[in-house]
Each structure stands twice: as C-alpha cells, then as structure tokens.
Nucleic acid binder design. Structure first.
Length: 465
RNA sequence: GGCUGGGUGGCAGAGUGGUUAUGCAGCGGCCUGCAAAGCCGUGGACCUCGGUUCGACUCCGGGCCCAGCCUCCA
C-alpha cells in the first residue's frame, strides 16, 4: 500500500487515485531565464522517481510539468541581455532539457508553456470574473478577490486575518484587499502582451498553472507537486483560482520537496548562494548528483557540500564495483530475491523513502559480494536484482567500467585513458620483474593524478577516484 | 509576531515503545609482493527537563536551538 505525505492534510495517507489504475500528476516546473541550479535539479529528480515508482506499481501515469516562459524576471533579463524574450526562453528551455537528460530524468508526458496557453488562461479568468471572484483594479489589472474564497489558507495553514495583519504584502492602491493577487497584468508600452476583453496584457504567475493543469488533466486530479517555497502563495492561489472557477475540488494530494541548502541556508537565486547543475557536472558525474539527491528523503533539507557529493561518489563506486565483478563472473542463475524486492518496494511505498531503498541496495550488494567470493551461483541473480532495483531509482544503468573510469573529476584535466594505459604497461613490466619499488612508484604517480588501481587475478584495473 | 517542519553515533542519513539501519570514515582480522577492492568482526547515537509506561531515542507537555514560509524563488 502506497502512503504519501499530503501537505494539505499534513499527514501520511494511503494513496487512492481518482480513477482506478490511473494517476494524473502536475508539477510546477522552471521559469526559464537562467540555468537550472541544484534546487531545480532536486524537483526534477524527486518527481522523476515518484513517477517511476507509481509506474512500477502499475499505474498509468500522466505527468505534466509546465514551463513558465513569460514573467517579470524573464522580461527584465531579456532586456538586460538585449535579446528577445523568445530567444532567451528557447535557450534556457534547451539548457534545462540538457540538464534533465544528464540527470536521467524522464521527460514528462506534457510540457505546456504559459505563452501557448493564453486562451485557456483568458477563459479561466473570464469564468472568475463571471462568478464574481475577480475584478478589474483601477490600474487595469485583473485581480483575484481572496475574501470571496472561504477556504483560502488551508494548504499553507495560514489564516487570512494573520496574513492581513502581517501585511508584508506590497502596497497597491489598485487592489481592494492587500491579499488579492494579479490574474492578468496590464501591459506597459513595449512589453510582450496579448489582447483580452479587459486590456492588452499578460498572465499573472499563478493563473497559468491553474489553466495548464486543468487543461491537461481535467478539473480534478490526483497529485500536484513542486518545491516547498511554492506552497504559499503560489499553490494556495492555484487552489483558490481553480476551485472557484470550476466549482470542483482541485487536487487530492499535494507533495512538496524540501530545499537544497548551503551551509544550513536555503539555496536561492536571491541569496546568490546557488550552484548550477552544469557547474557541478564539471566536478561530478550526473549519476553522482542524482544519488546525492536521493540520499535524503525528498521532504527533508538537503545540504549541498563537496563532502556530501564525494560521499555519493563513494557509495556509487561500491555499488558499481560489485556489479562489475559479477558481470564478469557471468553467472546468471535464477535466485529468489523476493525479500529484497519486497523491502525495496515497502521503502518506496512509504512516502518514497529513497534512503531506505538505497539501504536495501547496499544489503543486496553485500550479499552479492559474499556470494561471488564463495562461488555461489546465486551471485548472478543478485546482480540482476541490484541492477533492476537501481533502475527503479534511475541509477546503476551505466556499464560499470564506464562509470568507474568516469570522465568527471577530470574536469578537463587529469590523464587520458591512453596515458593511463601506457603507465600501466610500464608498471606491469616492473611487476613481472618483481621490481616492486618501480611498480609502487608508478602507482603513487597515478594516485597523484586521481587514478586508483586494483591488481586482480586477470590484471590491473583502474578507476578515477 | 503568526504558521510549518526538524534536532539521531566523527560525517551523511533512515527507523522503531523493549532486538544490527545503511553508506563513508575508524579499529582488528582474512586476502594481497605491498596496496586497492571485497569479506569477517568491532567501537560509537538518539538536544534538554518533566510526564505516561514494567520499559521511551521512539508517545504527551514545557524549554532551548536550527531551517523555512508569511515578499520573487524549486
């Protein structure tokens, strides 16, 4: 039985889809004006494994992840760069896809863009106007009237009165209530805009997700996800808009992933303490980033540090080393590994507990190494199980030797494979001559270059540490 | 100030009312020319103060501390 922590109820609950056997899921994606940083990578990877797990349970999943390709920051950045909005967003959409692909993130089934959803957005705003949930402010903007929606604040656990008295809300005379938010923003001269019944303008941020999600998935769907920072106000506003417009419940399960932190502080653009995926990829292999993300529960903070990435690397090396040895052993007898499969499944069913699932992988690895050393033919089956379960997390799908010899860590420096092979031939000669001093000298040389050796029965193997 | 989540061994990170998490690092052993990898064994923890209980790291209450949201942010 799958259990999911639902932000709406603040409880772990049994997951029951609206339509048996099917899951409809929407995740807030990127605003494309810059490269993805680790925080974005976490969203991509976390919901990727959620989709993978749901599918492994046999659900037919429709996964939608939107792209916000029009907003204030995009407009500002395009202006700074002196390029068109379209050129800017296309560039960063392509970059995002590259990063996601590198991290082994499966593409969503639909990837709607705000600028391609204007009709739906306008229709929804019109419905909100018709039903009295929206009004035009004195500046021409269309606002959502929060006081019309009694449930406002349920998702984020906030009370409307508290929000008003907190009043860190921007002062805007055009609004009737400081809590009201923009649905349609009147365009200033020269800004990208679309015609509407009210004025030339562009969509507010929150409405696009309401329009795109209900368009792709229907007015009522199963899962809505995103970073914890979207819980309020973005997701709160989505609920208010969607439920007011459709008169139906919007979403059954809200899933929010925790932040990536740096030195115990949220990684964010405004703090400037972020690391982009491509920066990190200069130092680490993509799978190491993926492992790092999965090594903590999706809802917990994830502290970014070089040390933690290194730990991810060590862990992956252990897993791949076991796989490499066993593949070469070649044994592939059937073995009853149901216990491991079951424990893995149980872990994932418990609110996608990836650290627990990884622990199962390591226990499997120990069993595998032991079996192999003892010449137990069960090794082949254990290796196959390890690879299969790793695959459910999007891990361990590379050729072990390819991973272990890695290209990263090099970051452009470091010896080439040819240089390494040349040194290994020299060392081999020294060893054959029992010239241990020379052999050890060459080994030390390689270690200095970040290459570790393993002398085995069938020769010497190496990997990049 | 309001609200949310959290404080676990050297580090990372799960979990449980009474039994080994797991990985890295450490220590001892096996293996190895020596290493590495691997295997076997091993030390080490549950912020604090009360309460409930035969028994709490795990449940309840107070305190302290941390992060986050309340403004754009994954």
């Amino acid at each position: 039985m799958l259990k999911v922590y639902n932000s709406l109820t603040r409880k772990k609950q049994e997951f029951i889809p609206i339509e048996p056997g099917k899951v409809r899921m929407y995740v807030c994606g990127m605003t494309v004006y810059d490269f993805c940083h680790l925080g974005h990578a976490r969203v991509l990877v976390v919901f990727d494994i959620i989709v993978r797990h749901l599918r492994s349970l046999g659900y037919e999943v429709t996964y939608v992840r939107n792209i916000t390709d029009i907003d204030d920051k995009i407009i500002a950045r395009a202006r700074e760069n002196g390029e068109s909005i379209n050129a800017l967003t296309e560039r960063f959409i392509a970059a995002m896809h590259e990063d996601a692909d590198a991290l082994g993130v499966l593409r969503p089934d639909f990837e709607p863009r705000a600028t391609e959803s204007i009709d739906n957005i306008l229709k929804m705003i019109q419905r909100l106007m018709d039903k009295g949930f929206a009004y035009q402010g004195s500046n021409g903007d269309i606002f959502y009237s929060v006081s019309q929606f009694p449930d406002y604040g349920r998702l984020s656990g906030k009370r409307v009165e508290d929000l008003r008295s907190g009043a860190r809300v921007e002062v805007n005379d055009a609004k009737r209530d400081p809590l009201d938010f923009v649905l349609w923003k009147a365009a200033r001269p020269g800004e990208t805009s679309w015609p509407s019944a009210w004025c030339e303008g562009r969509p507010g941020w929150h409405i696009e997700c309401s329009a795109m999600s209900t368009d792709c998935l229907g007015v009522h769907f199963d899962i809505h996800g995103g970073g914890l920072d979207l819980q309020f106000p973005h997701h709160e506003n989505e609920i208010a808009q969607s439920e007011a417009a459709t008169g139906e419940p919007f979403v059954n399960y809200w899933i929010h992933n925790g932040f990536v932190e740096v030195n115990e502080e949220k990684m964010s653009k405004s703090l400037g303490n972020f690391f982009t995926v491509r920066e990190i990829l200069k130092q680490y292999q993509p799978e190491e980033i993926r492992y790092f993300i999965l090594s903590s529960h999706y809802g917990s903070p994830l502290n970014y540090s070089d040390d933690n990435l290194k730990q991810a690397r060590s862990a992956l090396q252990r897993l791949y080393t076991a796989l490499r040895e066993s593949k070469e052993t070649g044994a592939d007898t059937v073995h009853d590994n149901d216990a491991y499969m079951q424990r893995f499944q149980d872990a994932m069913n418990d609110d996608f507990n990836t650290p627990e699932a990884l622990a199962v992988l390591f226990e499997l690895t120990r069993a595998l190494n032991r079996a192999r050393e003892q010449g137990d033919p069960a090794a082949g089956g254990l290796a196959a199980t390890l690879e299969a379960l790793g695959g459910r997390l999007g891990l361990l799908q590379a050729e072990p030797e390819t991973y272990l010899r890695g290209q990263a860590g090099a970051g452009g420096q470091g010896p080439t494979d040819q240089e390494i092979d040349a040194l290994l031939i020299q060392r081999r000669a020294a060893r054959d001559a029992r010239n241990w001093a020379e052999a050890d000298r060459i080994r030390a040389l390689l270690i200095d270059m970040g290459i570790e050796l393993e002398d085995g029965a069938e020769g010497t193997r190496w990997r990049r540490a």
